[in-house]
Design a protein around this nucleic acid. Structure first.
Lengths: 216, 216
DNA sequence: TATGAAAGTGAGTAATCACTCACTAATTTA
DNA sequence: TAAATTAGTGAGTGATTACTCACTTTCATA
């Protein structure tokens, strides 16, 4: 089973059962959307790549944009899944006495996820600027929830005296900048270069902790 | 004359040579490309917005992609202009004894530029994933030269004992992540929120310096 | 095995696409 | 001023677009 197949299966594991042809449509769409972008991909091209008639696409998805949303919405949901589980704070605070351990765990977990879903991640960040519907969904349901959670986490570790006194939103911003900066550089800007991932992640965390901790 | 020089030359001198209609075409194209993306913008739409006949666009630009390139290439050149001037290192090393001052100056200068050219910046980062020609140009002529320069700067301040011993490329990566993270959050993700820019930039630099300096 | 519903098909459709071209208008050059 | 060059036009082009629909095939259940 290929990487793509694994990705697709994971994505729709809990969703309604899809027919073989439907799965192939989704897989073909993901491939083309990630490579050429949503607007530059035609439905005839997707049908050809998926080995189905063009009409089959519209049997399952009312419009081309519906197909995009069917791909992107569950991806965003999965991306933030670890942040919206019940008792997120409790679990974390119990498991991680130090902010550094929390950051490490989150980074490793989410990088692993994104590594296995790079095409989907590509589509999300490439289409968010162009799809108001998608942007709205991201802002209201995704970003806000995550930031609210993260704010609590930051305040918790600030109270424990582990990270500097700075507005939590600023700390969240620079932290996410650092993490996504690594992911984008590693997997999108220079994926062909040689990367010692473990070392590079360690350095990134070192920089982050230096920047945020009270003492050295 | 190098590619860059030519681009810069073109940028500064060609502006006067454009006819009124041509200027309107470029302005309309920038507006639409930034808003809807290159692929989703039609030439008829640009012509209508510019108040010219559609044929006029193709009188000056052979293809729609040529129009995009005529907009984007000089923008990239302008963005990196401060990094490719002659005696870049000398000037900087003379003026800035501390890495922090250098960072401050660059951030302020480039944020000011991007603030005034946000539509163009949008187009560049939105289209780089989809235009191989653009990506190639960016990588070969832009990114490499900048990184080479920045590497020298980083090594210089490392030798002076002002920033931590870490591979210069890693330091450049986290630094650029932090800076672009601010710009993207400030002007693209949440431009409607209230921002105390001076304070927020100060905090960002504080985080950056904490993360990169040897002592506190 | 019969039947209805869902899945799948592909030719067809109107609209739109990037681009052309024969032409006129304006400007530069001789 | 005359000729030559450039700027501007807009109807017209074939190709492609997202999407439809009458039809056939597949398949679960009675």
């Amino acid at each position: 089973m290929s990487q793509q197949d694994k990705m697709i299966e994971e994505l729709f594991h809990n969703a309604d059962e899809l027919t073989e042809k439907q799965k192939k449509i989704v897989a073909a769409a993901i491939e083309s959307f990630a490579e050429k972008g949503f607007a530059a991909t035609s439905t005839s091209e997707i049908a050809k790549k998926a080995g189905v008639a063009e009409g089959t696409i519209f049997r399952h998805y009312k419009t081309k944009k519906d197909l995009l949303m069917a791909i992107v919405a569950p991806t965003m949901a999965k991306l933030i899944a670890p942040f919206v589980i019940k008792d997120f704070n409790k679990v974390l605070n119990h498991d991680f006495d130090h902010f550094e351990d929390f950051i490490k765990a989150i980074i490793e977990n989410r990088i692993k996820f994104l590594k296995n879903n790079m095409s989907l991640f590509r589509i999300v960040i490439q289409e968010i600027p162009f799809q108001p519907e998608l942007r709205e969904q991201f802002k209201e349901h995704i970003a806000q929830k995550i930031i609210e959670r993260l704010r609590q986490i930051v305040e918790h570790y600030q109270a424990k005296g582990q990270i500097i006194e700075m507005p939590p939103d600023t700390i969240i911003r620079v932290t996410l900048s650092t993490i996504f900066g690594y992911i984008i550089a590693r997997y999108l800007l220079a994926p062909e270069e040689e990367w010692d991932d473990n070392t590079e992640i360690e350095r990134t965390i070192q920089f982050l902790m230096n920047g945020l901790s009270l003492e050295k």
